[in-house]
Design a protein around this nucleic acid. Structure first.
Length: 285
DNA sequence: CTTCTTGGGCGTCATGGCGA
DNA sequence: TCGCCATGACGCCCAAGAAG
């Protein structure tokens, strides 16, 4: 495997490993699996670049009180503090409790219920449809944030400081393009700096020439229109990719924070279990 | 100092989902 | 059905650190 291929392999598996980590948590597995998965994740993130610290945890309460759940403060990497209440409370939903997973859980329950058998059959194709959809970081994260107050939301609209909206960016074609030393092209002006490679002469796949026949006459005009549409599409996709990566990073950060919170909860559970064992052990003996 | 390794970012293409 | 959007995948470039 080439260097880039290996790198991309690791990159691609990063999310998968993270998901597996949380999946094991949801299954109620031991924390070692979490630690192992996290260490694996850390290994993928090792190196010279700054490794994102998961979270700093400070236990503010004893955690043994049944009536008054203790509050655990978890310092997230972003500086945000998440309050984790007593471990005997209703367990917080796992990070993978995306709509897809919820659908599976509902489906499982429905299938075990004989009276709902017909409904499960009816909803089968619908569930299949939902399950086959790609995950949306925005949806997953917003779903998470609705469950956990401290969790940030991914905004539906781009924030103003992030530049122009995609529509505006789509309309504004950069006028000044300079070639950099690396052979790439950099635009200047109010638009964000792009690295635009020289457009290929070959038409992209699936590009439909939808120009009205009345407005375009010569083949040159057709070619110009095609080039313009291609540049427009590339610019839009460029912005979309940036936004997607930003959301993905935010999503991964939230997952890491979630892992930290769950680790704290797990640790407290183990401590309480040990305490209960100590209390009950004289009776059992 | 040079070369290698590694991680991050970016642009682009391919593709599936979704709304009009 | 078509166009748009979101996202995975891939390749490239760059910076920083390690290794020689």
């Amino acid at each position: 495997m080439s260097k880039c291929g290996r790198k991309k392999y690791i990159k691609t598996n990063l999310r998968q490993m993270t998901m597996e980590t949380i999946d094991s948590q949801q299954d109620g597995s031991i924390p070692d699996s979490v630690a192992e998965s996290k260490s694996a994740h850390m290994q993928t993130q090792t190196g010279q670049n700054s490794i994102p610290t998961l979270a700093q945890v400070s236990v503010a309460g004893s955690g043994t009180g049944r009536g008054s759940p203790a509050v655990t403060l978890v310092q997230l990497p972003s500086g945000q503090t998440v309050h984790v209440q007593g471990v005997f409370q209703t367990p917080q939903p796992s990070v993978i409790q995306s709509p897809q997973i919820q659908t599976v859980q509902v489906a499982t329950i429905a299938e075990t219920d004989e009276s709902a058998e017909s409904e499960s059959v009816i909803d089968f194709h619908k569930r299949r449809e939902i399950l086959s959809r790609r995950p949306s970081y925005r949806k997953i994260l917003n779903d998470l944030s609705s469950d956990v107050p401290g969790f940030p939301k991914i905004e539906e609209e781009k924030s103003e400081e992030e530049g122009t909206s995609p529509n505006i960016a789509a309309m504004a074609v950069p006028t000044s393009i300079y070639q950099t030393s690396t052979g790439q092209y950099t635009t200047t002006g109010d638009m964000p700096t792009y690295q635009i490679r020289a457009p290929t002469t070959a038409l992209p796949q699936g590009v439909v020439m939808a120009a009205s026949p009345g407005s375009l006459h010569s083949p040159q005009q057709l070619a110009e229109e095609a080039t313009r549409k291609r540049e427009l599409r590339l610019m839009k996709n460029r912005e979309a990719a940036k936004e997607c990566r930003r959301r993905k990073k935010e999503y991964v950060k939230c997952l890491e924070s979630r892992v930290a919170v769950l680790e704290v909860q797990n640790r407290k559970l183990i401590e309480e279990l040990e305490t209960l064992k100590d209390i009950c052990s004289p009776k059992t003996d």
